[in-house]
Simulated scan of single mutants.
Amino acid sequence: MIDLLKAQKAFQKYITHYDSTIPSIRLKIIHTYKVIECSEYLCHKLHLSKEDSDLASLIALLHDIGRFEQWMRYQSFADHKTIDHALFSSQLLFDEGLIREFIEDDQYDDIIKHAIEQHNRYQVEDGFDEKTLLFIHLIRDADKLDNFRVKEEEKIENILYVSLDEVNHEQISEKIYQQFSQQQLIYAPDRHTHIDMWLSYIAFIFDLYFQESIQYIQDNHWVERSFQRLNPVDFKVNKQYQTLKQIALDYIQKRSAV
């Protein structure tokens, strides 16, 4: 049995160890609760059972549990430069036994573990059964959906760690331009500039699994809103940026019409 109220109280207790006045810590606390909301949205649209919906919410609650310690140790959320936050979250929960603070019943452990470990992968690994894949795709989509809200509400400085003016004076790396143009999820180590990073967040749309997630993006105009936050100064870069915007809009329009 899943007691979400108990799990949420345990999460609130856990985060008291971290200073919520630090912008990056506050960002991840809010993100956790918003990912739960996105997960609930998807579960409702997919007509999942209460048990499955509750399990998806629990996974959403725990998916970034390692982010807080990651930030305190490294002052960075860049996994390729620090630690894989998904694996670290899994280790905290299952190697160190933290999971039992959130749920006593161990029947869901394998699904929770696999979903958390796969939620930030460039591609989902092979070998999972249909049930496990459902929860992997739910958390991957819910996480990506809330990232669009984060990128709109948070200051650029809290996301990219440089000023908006600096980002707008940067170039788009050729490899990133090509990956986005080909409607591919962007491989994080290939990014070289902060505008590359920004485009990689928008490129999350190319990895969304559920049709309902695509509809969510379209209904909330997230592509337009995300592109509007930057305005590259260089004429050539701005032209590239607008081209990528149209590619993203066309992609959402095409997939939502399916």
Rank of each mutant, 00 (worst) to 15 (best):
H221Q: 13
N238W: 11
E101N: 15
L138S: 00
Q70R: 14
P189G: 08
D250T: 13
H63R: 10
H137V: 01
A188Q: 14
T243Y: 11
S90K: 02
I139S: 04
A115N: 03
K175N: 07
K50E: 10
K9S: 15
F210K: 02
V150G: 00
E101S: 15
S163N: 12
D165S: 10
K151E: 09
N158S: 04
N238Q: 15
T243E: 09
Q178F: 10
V223Q: 01
I159W: 01
Q178S: 11
K34H: 07
K245S: 10
E166R: 02
H17W: 07
Q70L: 14
K144G: 03
V167I: 13
H221G: 03
S200E: 02
I30W: 02
C38N: 14
D219N: 13
Q123Y: 00
M197I: 15
F206T: 07
I65V: 13
F210Q: 03
I36R: 00
I29M: 11
D95S: 10
I99N: 00
S200F: 04
L87M: 09
S53Y: 01
I195K: 10
I112C: 05
F135M: 01
S90W: 01
I2H: 00
L42I: 12
S57A: 12
D190W: 07
K239E: 13
A56G: 07
K13G: 06
G127F: 11
H194Y: 14
V233D: 12
D219W: 11
Q183K: 15
Q215F: 10
Y14T: 10
I217A: 09
Y74T: 06
Y209M: 09
L134V: 07
E40H: 04
E130H: 09
S181L: 09
E166P: 01
Q184A: 04
F135K: 01
F210S: 02
D52R: 02
S57H: 02
H85Q: 15
A188K: 12
Y209N: 08
H17K: 10
N168G: 10
V35Q: 03
I29H: 06
I172T: 07
N231Y: 12
P232H: 10
L4T: 09
Q8W: 09
Q218W: 12
K34Q: 05
T82S: 13
Q12K: 15
L164C: 07
Y18T: 08
F128K: 01
L230E: 03
N120D: 15
E224W: 11
L244N: 03
F206M: 11
D110K: 11
W71C: 06
D64G: 15
K131P: 02
Y108D: 02
R26F: 01
I136F: 00
A7K: 09
Y187D: 13
